[in-house]
Simulated scan of single mutants.
Amino acid sequence: METIGFIGIGNLGYPIAENLLKAGYKVKIYNRTRVKALPLEAQGAVLVNSPEEAAEKGGIVLTLVSDDAAITSIAGDAFAAALGNGGIHVSLSTISPDTARVLAAHHKEYGVHYVGAPIFARPEAAAAKVGNAVISGNAAAKERIKPLLEAGFAKRVFDLGEDEGNANVLKLIGNFMIAGAIEMMAEGFALAEKNGLEVKAVYEMLTSTLFASPVFSGYGAMIVDRKYNVPSFSAALGLKDMNLVLQTASRSHTPMPLANLVQSRLTTVVAKNEIPEADWVALASGAFKDAGI
């Protein structure tokens, strides 16, 4: 099997890289904090010292980093040249669609295809390979990378065409809708508690009937238990994503009042820093505080 480059071993990157190793791929890993990747070296990964060293001519490199600044700093001239003609850069990160398109245009100068493939999965879902991927970019490049996505984390892969920014537009929509669901549940559960209902019973009824889905059942349980500090996806990253949602909405003249609300909730969580290692589900705390709970 071919050698794959992987850049970014965080909470989500680690299980994906581990799954690729288990599937038999040779994996070259670059991570800014090298120590986080050492357990993967023990499983057969090769640790390299720069993003360029993770690339092979005409090969594939997957990147999973925190934000637009991080991906831009990694995927510059040296990186694209190292991949070279026929190479593919698969960006698993949640970034601005505009940044994706800029990177794609830059990569084309070196004969490299850029494929946007942001992940819909928390770390435990990625580890179990029951996540979802949305992809956009060159058709042949997408076909080449699908087995990697399926081996790494994806139960299903959804193709959104050749515009490299499309996948990130959908990823931002998805994250906005998750955040909106968290806010909606928090307000509903606060109303239940203020009126003397047992909140867990409310949760169990709603998530087994009208709202039977992973988002409502998973995040709903965390809200009921006030389990705000399980930082699989940090409040800071959630805030970054809501900023990107509103940036994208502004550029397309799309009013999104609920996005403004959840952005404000996350800004408060990050600014006050009252919840150690806050997960983005901590945005739910605002509705309870507003209700005096």
Rank of each mutant, 00 (worst) to 15 (best):
E2T: 15
E2V: 13
G5K: 12
G5A: 11
I7T: 05
I9R: 11
P15Y: 12
I16F: 06
L20K: 11
L38F: 11
A45Y: 10
V46L: 14
L47T: 09
N49E: 15
P51S: 13
E52V: 10
A54Y: 03
L62F: 15
T63W: 01
L64T: 05
I71S: 13
D77H: 13
A81Q: 15
G84E: 12
G87N: 02
G87V: 03
S96W: 00
T99F: 01
T99D: 04
V102D: 08
A104K: 06
H106A: 12
H107G: 01
Y114K: 10
G116N: 11
A117Q: 12
A117T: 10
P118Q: 05
F120E: 03
P123Q: 12
V134T: 11
I135E: 08
A139G: 01
A141L: 09
K146P: 04
V157S: 08
L170F: 14
K171F: 07
I173G: 07
G180W: 01
M185L: 15
M185V: 05
A186I: 08
G188K: 04
E198T: 10
E198V: 12
V202R: 09
Y203Q: 06
Y203V: 02
S208E: 08
A212E: 10
G218S: 02
G220P: 04
A221T: 09
V224Q: 05
V224H: 04
D225K: 14
Y228F: 15
L237C: 00
M242F: 03
L258S: 06
A259V: 10
Q263V: 00
S264H: 05
R265P: 00
L266Y: 02
L266R: 03
T267N: 06
T268P: 00
T268H: 00
V270A: 03
A271D: 14
A271I: 01
N273C: 01
E277F: 07
S285Q: 13
F288A: 08
D290Y: 09
